[in-house]
Amino acid sequence: MLQRLPAATLNKTGAFSAAHASPLRTAQRFGSQARFASSSTASPNPFQSLVYSRATLASATLLATGSIAWYTHLYGNLPFIGEVHASSPGEVGLHPAAYPWSHKGWLDSFDHASIRRGFTVYKEVCAACHSLDRIAWRNLVGVSHTADEVKVMAEEVEYTDGPNDQGEMFQRPGKLSDYLPRPYPNDEAARASNQGALPPDLSLIIKARHGGADYLFSLLTGYVDPPAGVEVREGMNYNPYFPGGAISMPRVLFDDLVEYDDGTPATTSQMAKDLTTFLSWAAEPEHDERKKIGIKAVILFSTLTALSIYVKRFKWAVIKNRKIVYNPPADKTH
């Protein structure tokens, strides 16, 4: 259709019509150009043919759409089109940086020494307010501690058991099968002790928060003074990574707060990293085995896929290569 217009209109219609040029139409143009090739006038000068060529049109379109797409990818909205949001970006929390976790890669297992250190941090710092309901003592055995170590730790905690043959509940030292003790008997007690804020259970916190491990690490290490103009209520603390910016939990990790039994210096970021690794394990204890099975599955299934493709091509080779010849019957009337 384009070639019926005077050449100058192409300047005006520009990128818009180019964006709508479909392959079908391009094909039509090829055909019609070939048909009218003999009837066209003298060839235009080389500059014009360069400017009006389909390649120029296509590359200009590609450049335009590409740069718009790139801008949108970078900044999240279309260029020159303003957007109004009901909330400011600060209200959904600062986006955490991506950290190179030791278990991040496809083949990487957890760093179990880090899990062990992280449990130390949880036990000595976090466990004062946060429960870890879905982890039993026995889960630590063979992951971060030996059975003997875990038994000793469990026995330090009193659990209510029963009823006994008098029908009464009784206290007994913990066993491997007991779950980690809760700091508060119930959520209401937890709220009452924390100015109305409920410290969430940490068993699945890595899965339960947007950004996962990166978010948790950023949150633990991200406490700063509120910027000018931001007011934080009494009893709240400012943390840019927390949605809304005001978090009830104060900064808890300070250098040398705990002492690691492997001699690692307990800096704030080291403790945050170890704790995050520990909680990643708590949220996903099957992680190591899952990745190991994943390797096997990828190897086996890719082999089987290659095999089936080969067999298909082998079986179809006869059909794909056959040649159908029509021999008309000989005319016997003459």
Partner: peptide
């Protein structure tokens, strides 16, 4: 994953001879 798994660091924490220690697999 050399050095990262429990079996790589277990020897640091096993007390005594540990011959009757049962090796537990993961949870």
């Amino acid at each position: 994953n050399r050095g990262k798994q429990w079996k790589d660091i277990r020897h640091n924490y096993v007390q005594g001879a540990g011959e009757d220690e049962v090796v537990h697999k993961g949870p």
